[in-house]
Nucleic acid binder design. Structure first.
Length: 874
RNA sequence: GGGCGUGUAGCUCAGCGGAAGAGCACUCGGCUUACACCCGAGCGGUCGCAGGUUCGAAUCCUGUCGCGCCCACCA
């Protein structure tokens, strides 16, 4: 630390101003190399990879939350002596990014086909170059302690090699295959989608019943997608359905086409639903495809990749949604519509990327055979190699991996990792590894690219250099932890588990998985552009600073649970940072120091011993909370400790002790130095900037980033001091309340006399009450005008105050009556319990004792208050 | 259609078998030489509803109503 100016406590401004220092501090940390691990050190490794944000955009509040938590966790580990690698990176986000660039092109009146594949991909790279920088900047502003020397992108050469390598391995193991299947097709993006890229919503449609065939050999089928009837190749009924038994094996004529189609019996049909007869369209419906396979039916494609009808006839060239009513109308004209239900609400699949209604479509795609991989992924969690926090979410994980369908990985896009498969002139299929030459003349590469999640699934090891056996890979795999939102448990986490275990010889990608919740708006609603309730983290970074933004998000984070945030919370966090700033500044102004050790405990005051014990306790509590990722609770504990205990009580007491001068003052300065040293260390992972500024000033050391994390010493707690301080607090509060009730001016010193405590206690209490409650020592000619009695752990203290006969009897009476009511209620409750033999027999002794003492206290209170009320007369 | 979760102070949430809590908001009083991004005091809840288990239930069980999320090939 060379900046001598900032070592002058008097130079610290009275308000914490994050904007002026954050960027400099961050640059200093990066330049010093604090965030770059030294794999040759003998420290234990701690590695965590960033869930790579899409290059498509800027960071939203969810990222800000995720980064706050990851940074807190990694900073703490670094302070604990781990060799920490937090690895940053970005995701090429295939379909999302391609869509963005295509939209841009559309504005120029062009399509990607106008550019051609190569030029288009180049254009996406250009776009990535400009857009990606935004995200990195935001991470710097957040203060993310990531190792920039190891930044990765899913389409980097190294990561692309990893993709190709694992694809080839899967290919050779028979775990990827190419097959004609019904897949989810987005007619707008012109690509296949995996199951989880389809979002279902309840949409209104029309459910029409159509008569196929004529007379008593006819059958009525029902559908919501009437246009698909053009591709029907059968009608199916349940084998046990008496109504249709005579028809099975016969044929009916398919209206509008004149084709004859068979009536088949299939178990899949639910006789209770609709008419019990199902039209079968093997090329455009997954169930029908299966029925078709069982009955060896042809599959007739009637729509192209844009959703345009291709079946010859009057409907050719119509969009599927135009064809639907047209076909219904044509059928109606023939008298074949026997029933219509409208509106008919049913689940309809939409493309997660563009919202277009997904069309099931028969096509040739690449799939990952997930069964063995998913089983391994389930086992790794079941046998504890990977632990999920919070544990409740493990169930969701199992539901998924235990029922996984094969994963469609080919996408008809240009932006992404091209499938490394070549087809020969005679339909040969060759998978080409990263270091192999593609086959020559007459061979063509598969035009498709891989699902974007295919490459991000490799992130825990591809980023460390795999398939090469690098030093990083050996040291940092498995990653110790992964932090991400529960919303991508299936998209990303499960797939990382599958590929990690597969590629790394059964070793899990990460030991611990922490799933955080989603950030919601102030009223708990999901943030979305359409709702217009998005809060941009950059706004908060500007207005409140990085520390306040981070602290707000951290203290809202309960494991796996969503959180609602608002600017009020951020303001509160900013206030907290400022409180910490001023408290430390005050301590420094009063000579707080870490240079001299804290004196022996027997020379310290109750208050000193109490705050030292509380400091110990908070160290332990924070550690325990971190182990369970209880951010909200650890933040609350630190907030409460810093503000209430340290500032509101100890700092006020310290003023008195320092005013005493001499050894008392010196001891207090040492205690202050120690306590602030510890609390700044504890807070640093959460609010790195303000703590760094303060701590370097307090200690003169280089940086808090590389300071040691506090360890609880496990020393015995001074219960006596704790009790006496609690008593003092209660007394002071009672006196303040009394003064408030009595309308005594805050500045007005009231002569006071305490009794009911021993000599030593009296002196300490008098002093405390006098200064903290802003009263005065009793003067000459003391005339008590009012008194109150406060029951403390060590007895009852009487406080007399000379209000010179100006006691507001009405106010006092009101207060006492309220207290009396409370005491009576308490008394009644306790008596009822104690009078119940079942309770006294069955409840644990300590509970009974507690109730008894409560009863005694209430009884004493009632007596005291009654006497006092009587003394007022009427 | 399944599965999961959740309903606690005006708001956002802790508490999950033994005296109803926090932050914010609100009321009252204060520029008390660290901080008005502050200090002090206070108001505010039959813990969704109905049953049950228990000496005792916000906490466990059952039912019910409301909300949320995930999964889903009933045409």
């Amino acid at each position: 630390m060379t900046n001598t100016a900032s070592q002058q406590p008097r130079a610290l401004p009275p308000t914490w101003e994050p904007a002026s220092v954050e960027a400099d501090l961050y640059q200093r940390w990066v330049d010093a190399g604090y965030f770059t691990p030294q794999p040759d050190s003998d420290k234990p490794p701690f590695c965590i990879v960033i869930p790579p944000p899409n290059v498509t955009g800027s960071l939203h509040m969810g990222h800000a939350l995720e980064h706050s938590l990851m940074d807190a966790l990694t900073r703490r580990r670094r302070m604990q002596g781990f060799d920490v690698l937090w690895l940053p990176g970005m995701d090429h986000a295939g379909i999302a990014t391609q869509n963005v660039v295509e939209r841009e092109l559309a504005n120029e009146g062009k399509s990607r086909h106008d550019l051609g594949r190569e030029a288009f991909v180049e254009r996406v790279w250009d776009w990535k170059a400009t857009s990606g920088g935004m995200i990195l900047n935001q991470m710097r502003r957040m203060g993310d302690g990531v190792d920039w020397t190891r930044e990765r992108f899913t389409m980097d050469e190294v990561l692309s090699r990893a993709v190709q390598t694992i694809f080839k391995r899967l290919f050779e193991d028979g775990l990827v295959y190419r097959a004609e299947r019904i897949i989810n097709w987005c007619p707008r993006c012109h690509t296949a989608l995996s199951d989880i890229e389809v979002e279902h919503s309840d949409d209104e449609g029309e459910f029409v019943s159509i008569r196929y065939g004529d007379g008593d050999r006819s059958v009525v089928v029902a559908t919501t997608r009437a246009e698909t009837m053009l591709g029907d190749t059968a009608v199916a009924v349940h084998p046990d359905d008496e109504r249709y038994r005579h028809l099975v094996g016969t044929e009916v004529e398919l209206p509008l086409t004149g084709r004859a189609i068979p009536i088949v019996a299939d178990e899949h049909v639910d006789p209770e639903f609709g008419t019990g007869a199902v039209k079968v369209t093997p090329a455009h419906d997954p169930n029908d495809f299966e029925i078709g396979r069982r009955h060896d039916l042809p599959a007739i494609m009637i729509m192209d990749e844009r959703g345009i009808i291709t079946a010859h006839g009057p409907f050719e060239g119509l969009d599927r949604f135009e064809a639907r009513p047209a076909i219904v109308a044509a059928l109606r004209a023939q008298g074949r519509i026997v029933a219509e239900k409208r509106p008919y609400v049913h689940a309809v699949g939409h493309c997660t990327r563009c919202g277009t209604v997904v069309e099931p479509r028969l096509s040739l795609q690449w799939f990952v055979r997930t069964e063995p991989l998913a089983r391994a992924a389930g086992d790794a969690v079941r046998d504890g190699r990977t632990t999920i926090h919070p544990p409740e979410l493990a169930k969701r994980y199992f539901d998924w991996v235990d029922n996984m369908h094969d994963w469609c990985i080919s996408r008809q896009l240009w932006w992404g990792h091209r499938i490394p498969v070549w087809y020969g002139p005679n339909n040969e299929v060759v998978c080409v590894g990263p270091d192999e030459e593609p086959p020559g003349e007459g061979w063509t590469q598969d035009p498709d690219v891989l699902d974007t999640w295919f490459s991000s699934a490799l992130f825990p090891f591809s980023t460390l250099g795999w398939p090469d056996q690098t030093k990083d890979l050996a040291r940092f795999y498995p990653n110790q932890l992964l932090v991400t939102g529960y919303d991508i448990l299936f998209f990303w986490v499960a797939r990382m588990m599958m590929f990690g275990l597969y590629a790394m010889g059964g070793r899990q990608p990460f030991d611990h998985l922490y799933l955080h919740g989603l950030v919601r708006d102030p009223t708990g609603k999901k943030m979305s552009k359409s709702r217009g309730n998005i809060i941009d983290p950059l706004d908060w970074l500007d207005e409140f600073g990085a520390d306040a933004t981070r602290f707000t998000l951290s203290r809202g984070a309960n494991p796996g649970a969503d959180m609602a945030i608002s600017a009020d919370w951020a303001a509160g966090s900013r206030n907290f940072c400022n409180k910490l700033w001023n408290a430390t500044r005050f301590a420094l102004l009063n000579g707080a120091t870490v240079a001299s050790p804290v004196p022996a405990r027997d020379t310290l005051t109750d208050a000193d011993r109490w705050i030292l014990d509380r400091t110990e306790a908070i160290v332990s509590e924070v550690d325990e909370r971190y182990e369970e990722y209880e951010f909200a609770k650890l933040c609350a504990a630190l907030y409460h400790f810093t503000w209430d205990e340290l500032c509101d009580w100890y700092l006020e007491i310290a003023k008195v002790q320092i005013a005493e001068g001499g050894e008392r003052a010196e001891a207090t300065r040492a205690v202050l130095g120690h306590v602030f040293d510890v609390v700044l260390r504890l807070l640093h992972p959460l609010i790195p900037f303000v703590t760094e500024s303060l701590w370097t000033t307090l200690t003169g050391n280089e940086s808090l980033v590389i300071a040691e994390w506090p360890k609880a010493t496990g020393a015995a707690v001074d219960a006596g001091a704790a009790r006496r301080i609690a008593g003092m607090q209660k007394l002071v509060t009672e006196v303040r309340r009394f003064r408030n009730d009595q309308g005594v001016k805050p500045g007005q010193r009231v002569p006071t006399r305490l009794s009911g405590v021993d000599e030593a206690g009296l002196s300490a209490l008098s002093q405390a009450v006098s200064s903290l409650a802003r009263l005065a020592e009793p003067g000459e000619g003391f005339t008590p005008g009012a008194s109150l009695e406060v029951a403390l752990p060590d007895g009852t203290v009487h406080v007399e105050m000379d209000l010179s006969g100006t006691v507001d009897v009405a106010a006092e009476r009101k207060r006492l009556e309220k207290d009396l009511a409370v005491a009576r209620k308490e008394m009644t409750g306790c008596e009822a319990k104690l009078g119940n033999p079942n309770f006294t027999d069955k409840a644990p002794a300590d509970v009974v004792a507690k109730i008894q003492s409560r009863r005694d206290v209430a009884a004493a209170d009632i007596e005291r208050i009654t006497a006092r009320l009587e003394s007022f007369g009427d």
